[in-house]
Amino acid sequence: MPSLEETLAAHPFLAGLSPHHLQLIVPCASLVSLPADQTIFTEGDQARQLYLLRSGRVALSIHRPRRGQRTIYTLGAGDVLGMGWLDLPQQWFFDARTLEVTRAIALEADCLARLSEAQPELGYELLQRFVRVLLGKIKLLKLQLVDFYGS
């Protein structure tokens, strides 16, 4: 079985990070396995974790009064879930629910923040990766807004 450090290194979000930086992250990380149809977090709850998805699928949705739940996008293996803690008031702004059995690496946000302050080089590395993920998401959401399929 691969070590936690190897599992971290294998996720695209952390790929290319130096072994030293990976070792520093290990104490912030744990492996989670979630059954299908399980709520991971709910809009408004305190955002304390980041999930690096390894398999399965997760739906991010928003609740609309009287009109029910609307799925905004789904995430799968290799994706990053949950960056609500990056901004105040550190709350989730979507609901997240598994669609299938999902395996992920959970990273404690406070732990990552402390590490980043103590090790600015690692903090900068992580920040660059968050920006890349966020820009990718903005691009995809923009495409979702235009009539991508011309219907």
Binding site: R57, G68, T71, I72, Y73, T74, L143, Q144, F148, Y149
Partner: peptide
């Protein structure tokens, strides 16, 4: 198969095809 947005009864993918 993927769609741009869907209700809770859709268990497929949501997001553009390129994802």
């Amino acid at each position: 198969v993927t769609v741009d947005s869907a209700g809770a009864d859709w268990h497929g993918n949501v997001g553009v095809v390129t994802t």
